[in-house]
Design a protein around this nucleic acid. Structure first.
Lengths: 121, 121
DNA sequence: GATAATGCTACTAAATCAGTAGCGCAAGGA
DNA sequence: TCCTTGCGCTACTGATTTAGTAGCATTATC
């Protein structure tokens, strides 16, 4: 039995308070959630196209994530065009772009460090 | 064998390109990653305090996440004060606060919908 | 009829996470 | 010294989640 889709105003995995941010962190903190939102930024994708965009994520998980994201009204399945972000999700887009920028700077930071040491398996 | 800590400029789970955003999405898309950053916003926490803040997350996973976040230089373990965000991580803070605001609006949206239907188990 | 693309499900194996217990260490008080 | 407390961290078992592969039913196009 998979976990319930996190929704605001009700307890979620890891928090019983019902605080909306906790539901959001639960939702986005599941594998492929952020990635799916990222890949849908440039327009709708069919299930299979989305699967390909996410480097061949297994359909089981993708199906599960889409179910949750639809329950949370971040994604809709527009018959014919495929899966698309809702208006609500689009308001998260600036955040995602900011993450993008941040990640670029992060890479420069790490790149200039020249360690090659502290990885882990 | 747990997965490697995602770092920019190298392939990660779900993407072989080495694009920094992919590493970031992999890193943040692991359970408790976003939550840990969230909980550390207001200052350093000891391991146990952090564990409590995250509603008793199992020490195994918390240890793993902290390892990854330290490898990514988002978190440091300041001996004596506990775990703290790095300057780099602090630049993500506005994003997290934006998520907070977004989540509040999300809750109002959902709250005004009055369905109580489309959950899933 | 053959081919291809769609969304989606079933199934097994692998990886991750949860839950609990406990270690070694250091500090503080009696 | 003994006792207690808190610290970071590890071990272990079982539950949950994810990966990987195959395949179905449907629709559309040739």
């Amino acid at each position: 039995m998979p976990a319930k889709a996190p929704l605001p105003r009700q307890p979620v995995r890891g928090s019983t308070t019902g605080r909306p941010i906790m539901a959001l962190l639960d939702l986005l903190g599941r594998r492929w959630s952020l990635r799916v939102l990222w890949e849908l930024q440039n327009g709708p994708l069919t299930f299979r196209a989305l699967q390909a965009a996410c480097d061949g994520v297994s359909p089981t998980v993708l199906q599960q994530r889409l179910k949750e994201l639809r329950a949370a009204r971040l994604v809709v399945h527009d018959e014919g065009r495929g899966y698309a972000l809702t208006e609500a999700a689009r308001q998260l887009q600036p955040n995602l772009m900011a993450l993008q920028d941040w990640a670029e700077a992060w890479a420069r930071e790490e790149g200039s460090r020249e360690t090659g040491s502290e990885e882990q398996e």
